[in-house]
Amino acid sequence: MGSADLTGRVALLTGATSGIGAATATLLAERGAHVLVAGRDGARGGSVVAAIRSRGGKADFLAADLRDAQSARRLAHAADELGGGRVDILVNSAGLFPFGPTAQTAPSDVDAVYDLNVKVPFYLVAELAPAMAERGQGAIVNVSTMVAEYGVAGMALYGSSKAALNLLTKAWAAEFGPRGVRVNAVEPGPTRTEGTAGMGEDLDALAAQAPAGRPATAQEIAEAIAYLASDAASFVQGAILPVDGGRTAV
Rank of each mutant, 00 (worst) to 15 (best):
G85T: 06
A11H: 03
P178R: 10
L62W: 03
R74S: 14
G245N: 10
A164E: 02
D80V: 11
L36R: 05
V147P: 01
G2H: 10
V87F: 03
R247F: 14
A103G: 11
A59M: 03
N92A: 11
A233M: 05
G180I: 14
A249C: 04
V35S: 05
P242W: 04
A59H: 02
H77V: 15
G19F: 01
L96Q: 11
D111G: 01
T14V: 07
E81M: 07
Y123N: 09
L241G: 04
M155W: 15
S161E: 07
Q219F: 01
G159S: 09
A64L: 08
D115T: 05
R247M: 09
A50M: 00
G100R: 10
L165R: 10
T14M: 03
A126N: 14
L12Y: 04
V48M: 01
A131E: 14
T191R: 04
H34S: 08
A224N: 05
A239W: 07
D68I: 09
A129V: 03
S144G: 12
S18W: 00
L165A: 11
P188E: 08
D5T: 14
G198K: 13
L6W: 05
A51L: 04
A216W: 00
S108K: 13
S160C: 11
F99G: 05
F122W: 12
G15A: 09
N184G: 08
G195Q: 11
L96K: 13
V37D: 01
L124N: 09
A79S: 09
I225E: 03
K170F: 04
R9N: 06
I240N: 11
A11E: 02
A106W: 00
Y114A: 03
D109Y: 02
Q209F: 06
L241D: 03
K58S: 15
A43Q: 12
I89V: 15
D204V: 11
V183H: 07
M132S: 05
A50Y: 00
R179L: 12
V243C: 11
A72K: 06
A79H: 04
L90K: 00
H77N: 14
G57W: 03
A4H: 14
G21T: 00
T217L: 03
A239I: 15
L28A: 08
A64S: 13
S71V: 02
D202W: 10
E175H: 11
V152G: 02
S161N: 11
E223K: 13
T26H: 04
F97W: 14
M199Q: 12
G159M: 07
A50Q: 12
I140A: 07
E194G: 12
R135S: 10
G39L: 02
G32C: 08
L27K: 00
A197V: 08
S71A: 13
T191Q: 06
F99H: 12
S161M: 10
G213N: 09
A51T: 12
S234G: 08
A164K: 06
G83K: 02
L96W: 06
A233H: 01
E187L: 15
L28G: 05
L28V: 08
A76E: 06
A156N: 12
A64N: 10
A197C: 07
G151D: 12
F176G: 02
A222N: 06
L27I: 05
L241C: 06
G238E: 10
L167Q: 15
V236E: 03
T14A: 06
S18P: 00
L116H: 03
V87A: 04
Y158C: 11
R67D: 09
Q70W: 10
Y123D: 12
N184Y: 09
A164F: 07
A171I: 13
L12A: 03
A16R: 03
